Simulated assay, not measured.
Amino acid sequence: MVVLATKLYVDGDARERSLDSLRSLVTNEIGDLEVEFDLGVRHDEFPSVTIEGADATVARNVLREEFGEIVSDLESGETYVGTLESWDDDGFVLDAGQAVRIPTDELGLGPGSAEQIRERFGLVQHVPLAFVYGGDEPNEGTATPSRLTDAERDRLYEWTRGNGRLNVNCATRAEVRATLNRAGHAQDYVTVERLGLLEQSVVCTEDTDPPGLLASVGEYLPAELRCVVP
């Protein structure tokens, strides 16, 4: 079984649509392998994929690479993926099957408070982020703090160098694209990048103003929306 590092936190019809979307994503990744799989959702909202078949080991590795994996024990110095659970004056708290605090100084995303950094990079709640685990909670200042990976920092900085973005949670990629098109913005974005199962990044065209796009489509998306303005 592989527990994927992306959350499924919506209810009702939206939950069923999200499960269908996840099933399609998993099929796209491992459908050509000699395996069968079943989806489940744990009590902490992380989806699990149980895989059987001749290519089960390969399939598990493919899913780990694509989504990241939630594991029971974190080892110091190793890289994992967690979802952005909360933020405060001291930094970010990621959910990686257990709470992992990333101090503000270890985010590596420039000056400002954790809240200011979240706003600047358009980080919506539950977005998956890769980090290097530092160890247990600090004890008398001796533990190494956890930090974002260099690759994660580079990816977020790259967002601020483009044409602008609108990041969204609580919606699948197909739902975000359909909403943009229905609202008359089919020509205002380049693509919708999937950040997680329910977290998406709308890549704007050169002439599109991300705050203006947010104001236009916000009423149609029952979600958190954050802009990235170059």
Rank of each mutant, 00 (worst) to 15 (best):
P47I: 07
R17L: 13
E193H: 10
L156D: 01
F46Q: 01
V203D: 07
T83P: 02
E206S: 12
E65W: 01
F131M: 03
E36P: 00
Y189T: 05
I102S: 01
D89K: 15
L197K: 00
N139I: 09
D73M: 08
F46P: 02
G196Q: 00
E224G: 12
D32I: 04
D136L: 12
G12K: 05
G218V: 03
V217I: 14
E158C: 03
D207I: 08
A223H: 02
L213D: 05
E206G: 06
R17W: 10
T191P: 00
L123F: 01
I117T: 14
F37H: 09
A171Q: 08
A54W: 01
R165V: 10
D209H: 11
V229G: 02
G212N: 08
L25W: 04
R153D: 01
D209F: 05
E52I: 11
C204N: 07
L109H: 04
Y9M: 09
I70L: 08
A130V: 10
S113E: 08
L214Q: 12
P211V: 14
L33V: 07
V202D: 00
R182L: 10
V41F: 03
V168N: 04
D55E: 09
L198F: 11
L197V: 10
S201F: 01
R153I: 15
A183F: 07
R118I: 14
L4Q: 03
F121R: 02
E85M: 13
D20P: 00
L25V: 11
D136K: 11
L195A: 13
G108D: 02
G108C: 04
F37S: 02
E36I: 02
S113V: 03
W87E: 10
D88H: 12
L22E: 05
T57Y: 06
R177I: 08
E224Y: 05
N181C: 10
G68M: 01
G53D: 03
A56K: 09
T6S: 14
G108L: 01
A178V: 04
A215Q: 12
V41E: 02
R118W: 04
W87M: 05
G135T: 08
P230M: 05
D150A: 15
D150Y: 15
N163I: 05
F46W: 03
Y133H: 14
G122D: 06
G112T: 06
L74K: 07
G53L: 06
D88I: 06
G68W: 00
R153Q: 13
D20S: 14
P211R: 06
P128M: 03
S24Y: 10
